[in-house]
C-alpha cells in the first residue's frame, strides 16, 4: 500500500462522512440543540444573578458539552454498522487506525466545531467576561477532540449493542474527567486574570496522548465488535 493511496482513502472517507452529515443534519443538529438547551436551563434553575452564573459558567458549559458529545458519539459507527459498510471498511487493506482517524475527524467537524462556534453565545448567556470566553474557546478547541476520540472508543465498543447510547456514556464519562478538570480550571483561572498556560499545556498533552493512542484502541474495538454484524 503506497502512501499516496492511503492518503486518498483518508480524504475520501472524510469527504464521504461530511457529505452524509450535510444530507442528514438531524443527527448532529439535535445534540447541538441539546447542548444549548441544557446550558440555558441552568440560569432558570439557579437564578439569573450574574455573579452566580459567572461562577458556575465554566462547569455548566463544559458538563453540557461533555453530555452533548456523548449523545453525538453514538451515531459515529452505528449507521455504517447497520448498512454493512463498516464490515467493508474493516476488510480494507489500508491501516485501520488511519481510517478511524478520518471518521473521528469528520465527526469532530460536525459535533465539536459547532460547539466552539456557539461558545460566544453561551458565554453571553452565562455572563462570562471576555477573558473567560477566550479561555473557554481555547479549552474547547483543545478539549473537544479528546472527547471525540475517547467517545469513539466507547462508540466502537457498543456498536453492536442495541440502544447503546446510555452504555456509551457510562463507559466514557469517567475517562473524560481529566479533561473536565483541566478545562474548567483554565476558564476559572482566566476569569480572575491569571495565566492559563499550565492548564492549556496539560490539555494539549492529553490531546497529543489521545490522538496517538486512541486510534489503535478504536480499531481494536471495531475489530472485536464490528465484524460480526
Amino acid at each position: 500500500m503506497d502512501r499516496e493511496q492511503s492518503h486518498g482513502v483518508f480524504t475520501g472517507l472524510l469527504r464521504r462522512d461530511l457529505k452524509l452529515a450535510v444530507r442528514a443534519p438531524s443527527q448532529w443538529l439535535n445534540p447541538l440543540l441539546f447542548f444549548v438547551i441544557a446550558v440555558s436551563l441552568f440560569p432558570l434553575g439557579i437564578g439569573p444573578e450574574p455573579n452566580t452564573l459567572r461562577e458556575i459558567a465554566p462547569g455548566v458549559i463544559w458538563v453540557a458539552a461533555l453530555l452533548a458529545a456523548m449523545l453525538a458519539q453514538d451515531s459515529l459507527f452505528r449507521a455504517d454498522f447497520e448498512d454493512g459498510s463498516l464490515e467493508q471498511i474493516l476488510t480494507s487493506p489500508h491501516p485501520m487506525s488511519m481510517i478511524v482517524a478520518a471518521k473521528v475527524l469528520a465527526h469532530w467537524f460536525i459535533t465539536g466545531l459547532p460547539v466552539i462556534i456557539l461558545s460566544p453565545v453561551l458565554a453571553v448567556l452565562m455572563s462570562l467576561s471576555f477573558e473567560g470566553w477566550w479561555a473557554l474557546l481555547l479549552t474547547l478547541l483543545l478539549g473537544t477532540p479528546i472527547l471525540s476520540l475517547l467517545g469513539a472508543v466507547g462508540a466502537a465498543l457498543v456498536v453492536s449493542v442495541k440502544r447503546g447510547g446510555v452504555l456509551l456514556s457510562l463507559l466514557v464519562l469517567p475517562l473524560c474527567i481529566p479533561v473536565l478538570i483541566f478545562a474548567t480550571a483554565a476558564v476559572k483561572t482566566a476569569t480572575v486574570g491569571l495565566s492559563i498556560e499550565g492548564q492549556l499545556s496539560l490539555l494539549a498533552a492529553l490531546l497529543a496522548f489521545t490522538v496517538t493512542l486512541s486510534p489503535i484502541a478504536i480499531s481494536g474495538a471495531l475489530r472485536a465488535t464490528g465484524g460480526g454484524g
Binding site: V153, L157, V158, S160, V161, G164, L167, L170, L171, P174, L175, I177, P178, L206, F209, L213, S214, A217, G220, A221, A224, T225, G228
Partner: peptide
C-alpha cells in the same frame, strides 16, 4: 455493564478487555 450488554461471550470479552486496557492507561491520569 459492557460485558453483560453484548450477548456473544467472545465478542463481549474482547470488547471488555479493550475497555480495561484503556481504563488502566487512564487511571494514573485521572
Amino acid at each position: 455493564a459492557l460485558q453483560t450488554a453484548i450477548p456473544d461471550r467472545q465478542t463481549a470479552w474482547r470488547a471488555a478487555s479493550i475497555l480495561l486496557l484503556v481504563g488502566v492507561v487512564n487511571i494514573p491520569i485521572i
